[in-house]
């Protein structure tokens, strides 16, 4: 809450006055496309500065539709990033990523011990929570949301093969998850399958899964949630 407040206040364009605050050179430089490039180098400095030369291979049926090769957000480019930053590059994790920010979970994710993040897709969140419920979690019930997220984080940075071999793992929330293997992925708590596993970050593994874990009630499809526009 306070962070965006300060940030917004300091970087806001001035009120109705022109040219009072020149754009900082560095900020402007980031905005300007580099000649001779069609924009495909947008993987960002954070990724390229610290990227390991080792190519990261991710596995699972969803990987085919996620950034690959030299596209922005490709798995190799994320390898050196803090986990919370890496999450911002995986386009099917916008809900999970927003939840991490809403709950301030980054500190725990980026800890030195390393963690395994079982990150449900946006589709999984949409299948679990009504839009109203999700707003409540993101905006008001952040303690509850934090508890839910901690049900998706396991201590130790485990490749999916090790995760599957473990049989049972314990989450940061203290809950116990059964894990079974198969098809190069893992099935967690008898309901969630890894759909793109083995993203590597500075000290975490991210396995994208297709179901929300934890014990919160399902609210998707509730009456009255059909208020669009």
């Amino acid at each position: 809450m306070t962070d965006p407040l300060t940030r917004a206040a300091t970087s806001a364009p001035r009120r109705a006055r022109r040219r009072a605050t020149p754009v900082a050179g560095a900020a402007l430089a980031l905005l300007i496309a580099v000649a001779g490039c069609t924009g495909a180098d947008g993987t960002g400095s954070a990724a390229t500065d610290t990227a390991t030369p080792v190519a990261v291979t991710v596995t699972g049926p969803l990987c085919d539709v996620l950034p690959a090769g030299d596209e922005p957000g490709n798995p190799t480019s994320l390898a050196g990033q803090p986990a919370d930053q890496a999450l911002q590059w995986i386009p099917v994790l916008t809900t999970f990523e927003a939840a991490v920010r809403a709950t301030g979970l980054a500190t725990e994710l980026n800890g030195t011990e390393g963690v395994t993040i079982l990150a449900p897709t946006d589709d999984a969140f949409a299948a679990k929570f009504s839009r109203t419920n999700l707003d409540e979690l993101l905006l008001h019930d952040t303690d509850e949301l934090r508890g839910l997220l901690r049900d998706h984080v396991v201590t130790g940075s485990l490749p999916v093969a090790e995760l599957a071999a473990a049989g049972t793992v314990t989450t940061l929330a203290g809950t116990s998850l059964t894990v079974t293997g198969g098809d190069g992925g893992a099935r967690v708590a008898d309901r969630a399958d890894t759909v793109c596993a083995d993203y590597r970050t500075a000290n975490a593994r991210i396995h994208v899964i297709n179901q929300v874990l934890g014990s919160l009630p399902t609210t998707a499809g509730d009456e009255g949630d059909d208020h669009h526009s």
Partner: peptide
């Protein structure tokens, strides 16, 4: 003309 947004630079990833 050479300005680009974060969304354009990341080809929609962000």
């Amino acid at each position: 003309q050479n300005l680009r947004t974060q969304w354009e630079d990341t080809l929609g990833a962000q």
